[in-house]
Simulated scan of single mutants.
Amino acid sequence: MLGGTGEVLDLGRARRTFTRAQRIALAERDGGCAWPGCPHPPGYAEAHHLKWWEKDDGPTDLANGILLCSGCHHRIHDNGWQIEIVDNVPWFIPPASVDPARTPHRGGRVSIDALAS
């Protein structure tokens, strides 16, 4: 997959870290930290591999990336949350210790209404 200026956006296992072009594409989709209700903008977020680079041999591709701020990124790694992207929308699935039903929560862009309440 190529970006608007011909930059490669799917790198497979050739590189561990996401490129600037990939982070821009993720920012377009996620709007910043994708954790439900987190207001941190793209500049405060880091690209996370959905299938982890080391543990799962996850590729550095757009379909395997998501933006998370440092706190939310640690929550994923330390507390057993899972993330799925369905129709370009991130869904966060809590561990059974948080929600025995493991009900998914929609993530992505924070709406103005959510910030106002």
Rank of each mutant, 00 (worst) to 15 (best):
N88Y: 02
P42K: 13
L9K: 01
E54C: 00
D30G: 06
G6W: 10
G3D: 15
D30M: 04
D56C: 00
A114P: 00
D30N: 09
V8A: 09
L9M: 02
H105R: 15
V86A: 01
E84P: 08
G32E: 06
A21C: 11
A101L: 15
C38R: 06
G4M: 01
H77W: 04
I83G: 03
R20W: 01
R75H: 00
I24A: 11
L11M: 08
I76E: 02
I24Y: 02
D56F: 04
E54H: 10
V98C: 01
D61P: 01
D99K: 06
T19Q: 09
A14I: 12
E7W: 03
W81A: 05
W91A: 04
T60Q: 02
P41R: 15
H49S: 11
C69S: 12
V98W: 03
R20K: 09
H105C: 10
N88W: 01
L11G: 08
W52I: 00
H77P: 01
D61K: 02
E46N: 06
L2R: 14
D57A: 14
L62Y: 05
A47M: 05
P100C: 14
G58K: 07
R29T: 03
G6C: 11
K51A: 14
E84F: 10
G71S: 14
F92G: 08
W91Q: 02
G107T: 12
G71T: 13
I24N: 06
H105G: 01
L2P: 03
G37R: 09
G6D: 11
R75M: 10
D61F: 02
A101C: 09
V98D: 06
T60M: 00
H105W: 12
G71M: 10
L2T: 14
P36H: 13
E7Q: 13
S70N: 09
C72N: 13
L50Q: 01
M1Q: 10
A116R: 15
I112R: 15
P41K: 14
D30S: 07
I76H: 05
D30L: 04
D30F: 03
I83F: 03
L11R: 13
L62R: 04
F18H: 06
I112A: 15
V8F: 00
Q22M: 06
G80Y: 05
C33S: 01
P104C: 09
V8R: 13
V86K: 09
I83S: 02
L62G: 04
